[in-house]
Design a protein around this nucleic acid. Structure first.
Lengths: 117, 117
DNA sequence: GCTCGAGATCGACCGCCATCTATCTACATA
DNA sequence: TATGTAGATAGATGGCGGTCGATCTCGAGC
């Protein structure tokens, strides 16, 4: 229910008068909100957002050794960012020999995407 | 960000062997990415995400005095969150007398929403 | 004028996070 | 078994951000 601004400020205020009709709306489901917050925080870093962008545009699984030279941070730092993306449930990895391949989990961004639109 | 194909991994055991086909993909436009990071960070807090949710579900402008009792934080803290949402370009406010009304800026979430989907 | 109240700002505290270097683990080749 | 390499982990550090109480601002009503 929208607030009617025309009714809001009256010329006289009486005790207990409100600025507007009560809105008091139940927010989005709590678990739902917390999951989206995790995803949003994971995307709230330039390196991680660009990591997701690269991984998404590349349909397959990308080797870490291909990702490190793309960014101006050390290898442990990039590993840390990949770990955060994995903790948020956005990406997962697969090890083959010495190499590790990361990929975006299908549908991982759908919840936030749907809520945003 | 520069892409350097020469940085592809080299191993001694198989000269010229790679862990994978070179991906080295130019990411999303830098300014574009930074704007989305700002929005994502602004949404990366449970209170702010729920604030945006409440404001969006109400097509009109909502008084701060209606928002404060919805959350278990002090008034200065909620004001701080509203300020962060405004800094990120997600919401704006309008003052009428003693009261302040907040609303979601139309299209503010569109950029991130489009990129996510 | 004076007071009251809604909301913003200030200053402080504290925890989280991005970053680094150093080290560790696991695997592959000799 | 010994060595080299890819990637993860550990520990330290500096900065950002969420929170509070206290204070400030300014419009409204007396």
């Amino acid at each position: 229910m929208a607030v009617d601004l025309e009714l809001a400020p009256k010329t006289k205020r009486s005790p207990g008068e409100r600025c507007c009709e009560p809105v008091v709306y139940p927010e989005v489901d709590r678990e739902h909100a917390l999951r989206m917050v995790d995803v949003a925080r994971a995307l709230g870093d330039p390196i991680r957002l660009q990591l997701v962008d690269v991984l998404r545009k590349h349909a397959g699984k990308v080797c870490v050794c291909e990702l490190v030279p793309l960014f101006d941070v050390s290898q442990p730092t990039l590993s840390h960012h990949l770990g955060r993306l994995r903790s948020a449930g956005i990406v997962d990895s697969e090890r083959r020999g010495l190499w590790a391949y990361y990929y975006v989990i299908p549908g991982a961004l759908e919840e936030l995407s749907t809520w945003l639109s």
